[in-house]
């Protein structure tokens, strides 16, 4: 039944998109509650984080589970540059992106020869290393006290103060990033990435330099994460390492997976759904995480390719395993 709903939407893409775009743009005007607007800002921010992770995990065959490491770098770079060097938001955005992408390169280097599980474990290790170093390098980062007093965003000399204004900024960043991602994915670079994901041997035999393009993939994904991290620092005005734990990595990862890895719209949906659920159940805050865990497991059981994922994609093959097993069972019982 869910399948039919998804297929209906896919068949009527344009009208859905227009309605969606209008809702998104008019959102702060329609909903007067500042609390809800705050949730919206956070949700859109997560959409950008999830999209950046999706770029790494969904298109090049990597499976990074340590995204919080990149988030931490992006955030802290922005926070420190803002408080210690007094630079403005719009200047820091690209700097944050570049610094984080350098870290992306750093993370890639030892993972080049690794596959699958090992690569994932290393990404997790890296995220923790980053967090611990940032936590303990008190002279630079203020250690457990975090970075506070990050100024607000200035646009044409005017300080942005309301949640609505921040909403439009992050929306702008998201749309711009998605636009760039779309263009990259539909070019020689994107095709090289996907060829590596589908069949690295064949890709290599066709002249695709595996190491180079895997590295580029990490670098670009990390760049967009850095951009998002910069916004995060300027929105929350205060950051510390407790925001970048393993749980946070898993949080963003689950948004990508639940929404559909390997599609541009997947992480958007995933971030939306997960934030919707965690916010709706805020009143039952103790049970919130329990529900979250159950949601993840349910998604893997019912629709492992995620909401937006294609039913015939490699991610949906859980069902194949089930059919094979029941066939084997039938054979055993008649033997």
């Amino acid at each position: 039944m869910l399948n039919r709903a998804v297929n209906y939407v896919k068949a009527h893409r344009l009208p859905f998109f227009i309605v969606f775009a209008v809702l998104v743009l008019a959102f702060p005007i329609i909903i007067p509650s500042n609390f809800v607007r705050g949730i919206a800002v956070r949700t859109v921010l997560y959409m950008l984080f999830a999209s950046s992770l999706n770029l790494i995990n969904g298109y090049c065959g990597h499976f990074s589970i340590g995204h919080a490491g990149f988030m931490c770098i992006g955030c802290y770079t922005a926070g420190l540059l803002a408080t210690k060097a007094g630079l403005g938001f719009w200047l820091i955005v690209p700097i944050s992106g570049i610094v984080t992408s350098l870290f992306g390169l750093l993370v890639f280097l030892p993972t080049n020869r690794l596959s699958g599980m090992y690569l994932s474990i290393v990404t997790l290790g890296f995220a923790e290393i980053v967090r611990i170093i940032v936590l303990n390098w008190t002279s630079l980062t203020n250690g457990p006290l975090g970075v506070k007093g990050i100024p607000s965003i200035k646009l044409f000399g005017l300080k942005l103060t309301s949640t609505t204004e921040y909403y439009y900024v992050i929306l702008f960043l998201l749309v711009l990033s998605l636009f760039c991602m779309y263009r990259i994915l539909h070019s020689r670079v994107g095709r090289a990435w996907m060829s590596i994901r589908e069949n690295p041997d064949a890709a290599c035999s066709l002249g695709v330099e595996l190491a180079k393009y895997k590295a580029i993939n990490f670098v670009v994904g990390a760049f967009f994460c850095g951009v998002a991290g910069c916004f995060m620092a300027f929105y929350y005005r205060y950051i510390d390492t407790t925001m970048f734990t393993i749980d946070e990595s898993f949080n963003v990862l689950s948004m990508v997976i639940v929404g559909g890895m390997g599609t541009l719209v997947g992480p958007i949906l995933g971030a939306f759904v997960i934030n919707l659920i965690t916010e709706t159940f805020r009143f039952a805050s103790e049970y919130r995480m329990l529900l979250y865990g159950i949601l993840i497991i349910l998604t893997m059981w019912i629709r492992p390719q995620g909401i937006a994922g294609a039913s015939n994609s490699v991610l949906a093959t859980k069902r194949m395993a089930k059919r094979v097993q029941s066939a084997a069972k039938a054979k055993r019982s008649e033997a």
Partner: peptide, 17 residues
């Protein structure tokens, strides 16, 4: 060893890398 989830056109496009 084709790229299973890419179309024929996309498969061939990779050859132009």
């Amino acid at each position: 060893k084709l790229f299973d989830y890419m179309t024929v056109e996309e498969n061939i496009a990779v050859g132009f890398h």
